[in-house]
């Protein structure tokens, strides 16, 4: 009865008081701060986001690399310790020839494909995390 409804400026001040007053409620205060902004402003939280991403990618990269290259790297040792292995034949090829010419290619491709898939997934997860409003 006291205020005429069509007037515009009136609801705003009342609304602002309501929204900003409970400063202690963390979820509400955080709302406008997306992960993107945390990172851009180089806050502690932003640094944590980045450390998590970099750590995950580093772990992934190193493990794929170490498994694939480690498996290959064992071969010279194997052939040096036990020269008899060199005399095995698979598909008409000597074992070293078979392993190094034929078997490595699919193995490397598989490792690479797995890495690309996982790396893209962890980037998607990171994007969802930081873009959540």
């Amino acid at each position: 009865m006291t205020t005429p409804p069509p007037r515009r400026p009136d609801p705003k001040p009342t609304q602002r008081v309501v929204v900003t007053s409970p400063r202690t409620r963390a979820p509400r205060a955080r709302r406008p701060y997306s992960g993107t902004r945390e990172i851009n402003e180089q806050s502690e939280l932003g640094a944590v986001y980045m450390r998590t991403l970099i750590g995950a990618q580093r772990r992934l990269g190193l493990s794929v690399c170490l498994v694939a290259c480690g498996a290959l790297g064992l071969l010279p040792l194997l052939f040096a310790i036990e020269p008899e292995f060199g005399k095995f034949r698979i598909l008409g090829l000597g074992l070293p020839w078979f392993l190094l010419c034929v078997a490595t290619c699919p193995m490397l491709l598989l490792a690479g494909w797995f890495y690309v898939r996982q790396a893209e997934r962890s980037e998607r997860e990171f994007a969802e995390l930081v873009e959540r409003p």
Binding site: L60, L62, V64, C65, A68, C69, L100, C105, G112, Y115
Partner: peptide, 15 residues
Amino acid sequence: FPVGYTAGYLVLLTM
């Protein structure tokens, strides 16, 4: 040599 020349790209890809 050929294995290393190829595997170098796996290291490059992952790292």
